[in-house]
């Protein structure tokens, strides 16, 4: 009978964690340095083929486009708003008037796709006012729900360039 094998004591193998921790910290520093907080951006989708303007006579069944005029002073500040020739107080007022127009159009059997709006603005006007106007006419939020209004938005062709 062979002699019993000597019992080997279990040895605790210590894995060297230092390189892994080094790499992990390098990664973390990289991500922290390249991280920058960017506000989410969104789009207003506008389809504008060339040559489409209110100068063309509308079809019999087509609704005339809503004309929104944005006037500016020489500094580019908004000096006045009008809708179909009538003065409008501010963009909130514009939203209400457009909502009324859209409601009447829908009650008369038209669809949202039939409602068009043209923005006519001065060359010097600050672009922020265009976005404010588009925001006012393209929809409204009621009880947390977006109610779409005008989908077809276009610009009146430029008349003058400085």
């Amino acid at each position: 009978m062979p002699p019993p094998l000597p019992r080997r004591r279990l040895e605790k193998v210590a894995v060297n964690m230092t390189p892994m921790i080094d790499v992990v910290f390098q990664l973390m520093i990289f991500f922290m340095l390249t991280f920058n907080i960017i506000a989410p951006e969104g789009d207003f989708d506008v389809r504008m083929p060339l040559g489409k303007s209110s100068a063309e006579p509308p079809d019999d069944l087509q609704l005339p486009p809503i004309q929104v005029r944005l006037a500016s002073d020489t500094e580019g500040t908004l000096a006045g708003i009008s809708m179909n020739g009538e003065p409008v107080q501010d963009f909130g007022d514009l939203r209400q008037r457009v909502a009324g127009f859209v409601d009447v159009a829908l009650e008369s059997g038209a669809s949202l796709a039939d409602v068009e709006l043209e923005i006519d603005c001065d060359y010097e006007l600050n672009y922020i006012n265009i976005i404010d106007a588009i925001t006012a006419v393209s929809g409204r939020i009621e009880d947390g729900q977006l109610i779409e209004m005008v989908k077809k938005i276009s610009f009146v062709p430029l008349k003058q360039q400085p």
Binding site: A39, P40, E41, G42, D43, F44, D45, V46, R47, M48, P49, L50, C121, Y123, I130, I131, I134, T135, F155, P157, L158, Q161
Partner: peptide, 20 residues
């Protein structure tokens, strides 16, 4: 508008006006 007009003259029709 001028940029959009130049794009239109080259045949582009779809525009996305970007905002925050």
């Amino acid at each position: 508008q001028r940029v959009i007009q130049i794009c239109q003259e080259l045949g582009f029709q779809q525009f996305a006006l970007r905002a925050l």
